[in-house]
Measured scan of single mutants.
Amino acid sequence: MKVIFLKDVKGKGKKGEIKNVPDGYARNFLFKKGLAIEATPANLKELE
């Protein structure tokens, strides 16, 4: 799953980066803790 990092996550990504991460990791950790959001076309446009 492609995500946009909202905060730095040690060993995974830095704020503003767009990366592919495992689906479970994104849903169960990154999204729940507010560390990242899904890289949807709308979210990507908002980032620019």
Rank of each mutant, 00 (worst) to 15 (best):
V21G: 00
A39V: 06
L6I: 11
N43K: 06
G24V: 12
N43I: 11
L44N: 07
G11Y: 09
K32R: 12
A26L: 08
K33A: 13
N28G: 14
L47F: 14
N43P: 04
K33W: 15
N43R: 06
G34M: 09
A39G: 06
D8Y: 08
K33T: 10
G24T: 13
N20E: 14
I37P: 00
A39W: 11
L35D: 02
P41V: 13
I37A: 08
K7F: 14
K14V: 11
R27N: 09
I37Q: 08
D8S: 09
K15W: 04
P22N: 11
K15M: 09
I4R: 03
L47S: 08
L35A: 04
G24S: 14
E48D: 12
Y25S: 04
L35K: 03
P41L: 12
K2N: 12
K7H: 13
I18F: 03
L35R: 02
F5A: 00
L35H: 04
D8T: 12
V3Q: 00
G16W: 10
N28F: 12
D23I: 15
E46I: 11
T40N: 09
K10M: 11
K12S: 11
K32Y: 07
A36E: 00
P41K: 11
K12P: 01
G16N: 08
V9M: 05
K15R: 14
F31S: 02
K12H: 15
A39I: 05
K7Y: 14
K33I: 08
E46V: 11
F29T: 08
G34Y: 07
T40S: 11
N20Q: 13
V21H: 02
F5D: 00
F5W: 03
A26D: 06
E48W: 09
F5P: 00
E17L: 02
K10Q: 12
A26Y: 12
P22R: 10
K12Q: 15
V21E: 03
R27Y: 12
A36R: 00
A42E: 11
D23G: 12
K12N: 08
G34P: 00
A39T: 02
E48L: 14
G13S: 04
E17A: 05
N20M: 15
L44Y: 05
N20I: 15
L35E: 03
K45G: 10
V21W: 03
G34R: 09
G11I: 02
A36S: 02
F29M: 08
K45L: 14
V21P: 00
M1Q: 05
G34N: 11
A39K: 02
F31R: 01
V9A: 03
K45V: 11
G11D: 08
M1R: 08
F29L: 06
V3Y: 01
A26K: 02
K19P: 01
F29A: 04
E38K: 09
